Simulated assay, not measured.
Amino acid sequence: MTVAVVQFGGSNCDRDTVRALADLGIDAERVWHEDGLPSDPDGIVLPGGFSYGDYLRAGAMAAHSPVMESVRAAAAEGVPVLGICNGAQIGCEGGLTPGAFTTNESARFQCEHVHCRVENGDTPWTQAYDEGEIITLPIAHGEGRYEIGDDRLATLESEDRVLFRYCTPDGEVTPEANPNGSKHSVAGVIGDAGDHVAVMMPHPERATLEVLGQTEGRGVLQAFSH
């Protein structure tokens, strides 16, 4: 099994992601976006960072890289695709998932640990957790506020396509627990192609090592081992 971790100019979490996957026994390799995807990848990660310096909008320029045509084609064929942080922004800008990520409500870059509630435990990305379980993951973003039209969000919620919401340690969804002002505290959503495609703003790859005191992100990445 080989997971392609797509590196764009400005990506800075690609090595972290490869290392985190390797620690889970999942073969992964970095792929420079101009070189295209390897043939028949078993999974694809769009990692975090600041692709193209976040010019125009975060993820907007990378979304137009030719490799994204291959990513969309792979997603349509059932290949698991995960966008993390900047990769989530690229995923939304590239049409993998609805909505968009924009400037944090605070208008500041925020780097901290947050609590996330598992909203749908019946997806590849959340099958390691119980529905309603609270996990702690790090965030590091300046444009992490999820925005989407009310009607479209209502459809996502009715279809159980919200993966995670920001919450208190007790699982309450409150404005105070929402670090960036995301609509309805959304922290991750499932894509249009099916639940094998997802984007999320928190970083699961940064919460996989016991030596760092956090391993709750492993469950998300374990989706690539099934």
Score class of each variant (00 low, 15 high):
114 V>L: 08
116 C>L: 13
116 C>N: 13
117 R>A: 09
118 V>K: 09
119 E>S: 14
119 E>W: 08
120 N>T: 10
122 D>R: 08
122 D>M: 10
122 D>P: 01
123 T>W: 11
123 T>G: 12
124 P>G: 07
125 W>Q: 13
125 W>M: 15
125 W>E: 12
126 T>F: 09
126 T>I: 04
126 T>A: 11
127 Q>A: 15
128 A>V: 05
129 Y>W: 04
129 Y>G: 01
130 D>I: 03
131 E>H: 03
131 E>C: 03
132 G>A: 01
133 E>P: 13
133 E>R: 14
133 E>Y: 03
133 E>Q: 14
135 I>A: 03
136 T>G: 10
137 L>K: 11
137 L>A: 13
137 L>Q: 14
138 P>M: 12
138 P>K: 04
138 P>Q: 05
139 I>Y: 01
141 H>E: 06
142 G>S: 09
142 G>M: 00
143 E>K: 03
143 E>C: 03
144 G>V: 07
144 G>A: 12
145 R>T: 06
145 R>P: 05
145 R>H: 02
146 Y>T: 09
146 Y>L: 08
147 E>H: 08
147 E>F: 05
148 I>D: 07
149 G>P: 06
149 G>I: 02
150 D>C: 04
150 D>W: 00
150 D>S: 10
151 D>S: 07
151 D>K: 06
151 D>F: 11
152 R>N: 11
153 L>K: 01
153 L>T: 02
154 A>K: 06
154 A>F: 05
155 T>Y: 07
155 T>N: 00
155 T>Q: 02
156 L>K: 07
156 L>H: 05
157 E>P: 05
157 E>V: 14
158 S>Y: 00
158 S>I: 01
159 E>Y: 00
159 E>D: 14
161 R>S: 10
162 V>Q: 08
162 V>Y: 02
162 V>R: 11
163 L>N: 05
164 F>W: 11
164 F>T: 01
165 R>D: 09
165 R>A: 05
166 Y>C: 12
167 C>E: 00
167 C>P: 06
168 T>I: 00
168 T>E: 01
168 T>K: 07
168 T>L: 14
171 G>I: 06
172 E>K: 15
173 V>Y: 02
173 V>H: 09
173 V>M: 01
175 P>S: 12
175 P>N: 11
176 E>Y: 11
176 E>G: 15
176 E>N: 14
176 E>I: 10
177 A>P: 08
177 A>Y: 07
178 N>T: 15
178 N>M: 08
178 N>W: 06
179 P>E: 06
180 N>A: 03
181 G>H: 08
181 G>W: 04
183 K>L: 15
183 K>F: 02
184 H>L: 09
184 H>V: 07
184 H>D: 14
184 H>Y: 00
184 H>W: 02
184 H>K: 03
185 S>H: 15
186 V>L: 05
186 V>M: 13
186 V>I: 14
186 V>Y: 01
187 A>N: 15
187 A>Y: 09
188 G>Y: 08
189 V>M: 10
189 V>T: 10
189 V>R: 11
191 G>Q: 04
191 G>M: 08
192 D>A: 05
192 D>C: 04
